[in-house]
């Protein structure tokens, strides 16, 4: 069975939900610990949401220097699928695995909502099971989710199709070009602010037209990693 690791950092909150989402997708969830230098032979890695180290210094900055992150950086360079969700996305930019940065929401408030997104790139390890241009709804909850980068970086990301997710209807945090998530050039490392792991089981996801709380648009993220690994 495919093994997908979820790293728990001091202050991680969504590690258990991420493990659960991985099981829903049919893989084995492996708990990994920030202080280890051991990936326990996992095939893919999720950096979960939360407030590692209380967001001290900068969101994700201290966690990005955790012992296990040297193994994560090596694995990313080998092409292993790595997904950073929310605080995990912040760690990926602080670790320089993805470009740009995340700053406090432009309106100054924490935002928590079911967020509509467009999947703009379906060639990544975490989006290959979506149809191109798919519109999905998954929860979003952050205080520092404004994506920024210099003009040259933005132009490169847009030109290379590396904007993977874009906010629809509402830009909840002032992100440049409504960017919700991006990928690296190889497409194995993906980071986004919204939370796919909170939308993988009917009864526990966002509302849909069909019924309350039965949105499962997040499941395809994890199914995509399984598909990418089965081809590898």
């Amino acid at each position: 069975m495919t093994r997908i690791g979820v790293i728990t950092f001091p202050g991680s909150l969504d590690d258990r939900d991420a493990q659960r989402a991985i099981r829903h997708a049919g893989a084995e969830a492996v708990a990994l610990w920030h202080g280890d230098h051991d990936l326990h032979d996992v095939d893919a890695i999720v950096l979960p949401g939360g407030f590692s180290y209380g967001d001290y210094l900068r969101c994700g900055a201290i966690a990005s220097l955790s012992p296990i992150m040297s193994e994560v950086v090596d694995a990313a360079e080998r092409g292993m699928p790595i997904l950073g969700i929310c605080n995990g996305f912040q760690m990926l930019v602080e670790a320089h695995l993805l470009p740009g940065g995340l700053i406090r929401n432009d309106h100054g408030s924490f935002v928590c909502r079911d967020q509509r997104l467009r999947v703009e790139n379906t060639d990544t390890a975490w989006t290959n099971r979506f149809e191109s241009g798919a519109e999905i709804t998954i929860p979003l909850k952050n205080g520092e989710g404004g994506y920024i980068a210099d003009a040259e970086t933005i132009a490169r990301l847009e030109g290379e199709g590396r904007v993977v997710f874009r906010y629809l209807e509402v830009n909840p945090n002032g992100s440049i070009n409504d960017i919700a998530g991006i990928t690296n050039t190889r497409g194995n490392v993906v980071g986004l602010m919204p939370h796919p792991e909170h939308a993988t089981e009917e009864g526990f996801g966002p509302d849909t037209d069909a019924a309350m709380r039965n949105g499962t648009d997040g499941l395809a993220f994890f199914a995509s990693a399984l598909a990418a690994l089965s081809l590898a």
Binding site: R58, A61, L65, V93, I103, I148, A149, D150
Partner: peptide
């Protein structure tokens, strides 16, 4: 390297 992030 650590105390600041040159992106922001």
């Amino acid at each position: 390297s650590l105390l600041s992030n040159s992106v922001i």
